[in-house]
Design a protein around this nucleic acid. Structure first.
Lengths: 228, 228
DNA sequence: GACTACAAAATTGTAGACAATATTGTGTAC
DNA sequence: GTACACAATATTGTCTACAATTTTGTAGTC
């Protein structure tokens, strides 16, 4: 509903979804080359459709297309990763502020039931669902905030976060735990605007802190900088 | 540099730019149908390239593509217009905050010289330049803020603002005046974080207030709602 | 023996042709 | 005279073939 294109029949969206999931689940590592013909054969579609999917993924920041060179799974730098979190904090602060003003009891109920799903997926060890739902929680909040643009922006940022998490995560894959989500919802339900905003900021800091962003893991894109 | 794709040779970006400018300058009114073959003939390019441009413009919110129906210049509703300003205030608040912390004297100088260009274009009555530069000021600030994502988001929002301004502006086309821009820059140069943020918020409120967003000008998309 | 220039292979970019779909106009039946 | 069904037209969506570009391998020369 809020993590994919609404038109389920759109074949290009399905391909994007599958590639996105493969990246988020680390089956497709950053830097992997994505040959068009190869993908066309895998998905049994024409190359033109693959091109559509790749350009869509490029605008989401998941793949990088170099003219006449081909498409690769993006390799966000440490700086870019931090930038994503900076921006997320700015956006989600406003989302939570708006939710504190306008969230109905039904909205709160939707948040809680979403977290229930997260817990179920977590217990079942369904990695695919965990990845989808943990990002989906933040998107649900944005959706309920009533601002289509905040939602759209966060959609982009969450996609990029999936890639960043896949690239820089340390050993524990404590993927955006349900407990902290529940804490945020409780504060929103309580109505205390300031505390809810702070809870969310803290949560995002935790997610960022769990990544290996401190180390100089930043792999240079061009060999020149790496070897000279 | 910051309002178009960096690759000047990219033909599809040029087409997007021209269509965008035509919309921002009101030569292309909201709701206008954009037939692919027609555009292909006008720009002397293949229809495939026009399709690329249209999909790019769709993701910028400037055109709306209805499946099997064609592309139209978007007609943002009053709600969507207000939403754009809500989001801009959120983004630009953070941009100004960051600028107050990190802006160098050279950055300030670039802002001031940009405003000079705005004034020159204003005196010359160069509508095309006025439109480009007034949005460009905000994008310059975002660029200097050092966050590529805040910049990218604002790029989208500024495009949409151009369309909204073209659609809902009242008589006076006081297009985001240079004087208010200079006031913001002065506050940033002064270092007072809070006042600069407030100045920018006020400026954006002024721009929004000059539009005819209060009236129920919201033209319904489907005839059913209009006639029943 | 190493470096440069050239050629071949592979891959992306582009364009044109064909198929599917929606809209509009026309005819016929009631 | 009106309403419904059908056909014609126009426009979008998709696929396949061709051209341009880059990369890699090879041969020739210093």
């Amino acid at each position: 509903m809020y993590n994919a294109d609404e038109t389920a029949g759109a074949p290009t969206a399905i391909i994007c979804e599958k590639i996105w999931l493969a990246i988020a689940e680390r089956r497709l590592r950053p830097g992997t080359r994505l040959k068009e013909e190869q993908l066309a054969e895998i998905f049994s579609v024409s190359r033109a459709r693959i091109r559509q999917a790749l350009t869509a993924l490029e605008r989401d920041g998941l793949v990088t297309i170099m003219p006449n060179r081909g498409a690769f799974v993006s390799e966000p730098s440490v700086d870019e990763a931090r930038d994503v979190f900076v921006t997320r904090r700015a956006i989600e602060q406003r989302v939570v502020e708006r939710l504190c003003e306008r969230a109905t009891v039904e909205d709160i109920e939707r948040m809680r039931s979403h977290i229930d799903e997260e817990r179920i997926a977590g217990r079942a060890g369904d990695l695919s669902a965990i990845v989808r739902l943990s990002g989906g929680f933040h998107l649900l909040l944005a959706e309920l905030s009533g601002s289509a643009f905040l939602f759209g922006i966060l959609r982009d940022l969450v996609s990029r976060t999936s890639l960043i998490t896949a690239m820089y995560r340390s050993n524990h894959l404590h993927n955006c735990g349900p407990d902290e989500h529940m804490a945020v919802v409780d504060r929103i339900a309580g109505g205390g605007g300031g505390t809810a905003v702070r809870e969310m900021a803290e949560h995002l800091h935790h997610v960022e802190a769990e990544l290996d962003l401190d180390e100089e893991k930043d792999q240079p894109r061009d060999l020149r900088a790496a070897l000279l």
